[in-house]
């Protein structure tokens, strides 16, 4: 974590090489997070692009009260929902509805487990990703999603229940 903070501090000083290293460390993780949220590869690429530009522009505003990863995922989360809203205004209502509600996948299926994850409601997919893939503490997830810790645990309960049913 100290390494990430150091890297971000150098990005705040507009160090190009440090920005490239930060990109290499986080872009793929942000992409996977956005894919988990949006289930659309092109929209997820857009989220990565906008998130990393915001990191470049706003690195100096990072105050250090959270993990760097939580800060960056927070930006990615906002960008994901901004992109959804923008797409919605652009008239792609049907596609957006499918991204949010319809279990039909927007990306190619990569096995039974991936299908089961993609078929979860978005808030449960997110908890599963942040807990088992990003290894975030439940307190950090509560901060990131701006929800009570109890809600994080209850979403996990239902996510696990749904996954167990889908995989049985």
């Amino acid at each position: 974590m100290a390494h990430e903070r150091d890297l971000l501090a150098r990005v705040a000083r507009k160090d190009d090489a440090s920005f490239q290293r930060l990109y290499e460390e986080f872009a793929k993780r942000v992409f996977r997070y956005a894919l988990t949220l949006l289930r659309d590869q092109h929209l997820a690429e857009e989220v990565v692009q906008e998130t990393m530009i915001t990191v470049w522009d706003k690195a100096s505003t990072y105050v250090g009260s959270s993990r760097v990863s939580t800060w960056i995922f927070g930006i990615a989360r906002h960008k994901s929902y901004d992109i959804l809203k923008k797409e919605k205004k652009g008239g792609r209502m049907d596609e957006i509805a499918s991204v949010i509600d319809d279990p039909a996948p927007a990306i190619e299926r990569q096995g039974h487990v991936r299908t089961a994850i993609d078929n979860l409601p978005p808030d449960q997919r997110e908890i599963i990703f942040l807990t088992f893939y990003e290894n975030l503490p439940y307190k950090a997830i509560a901060d990131l999603l701006d929800i009570p810790e109890g809600t994080v645990k209850s979403r996990m309960y239902y996510a696990k229940k749904n996954l167990a049913e889908a995989l049985s």
Partner: peptide, 29 residues
Amino acid sequence: LSLQVRTAIDETPPLPGRVWDRVRTEKGE
């Protein structure tokens, strides 16, 4: 379950290199 989730997400398609090109261009490079 956590192992299955990790494996499944690891199989996500790779992030295309064009995204870095776009980021670099947008930030001024």
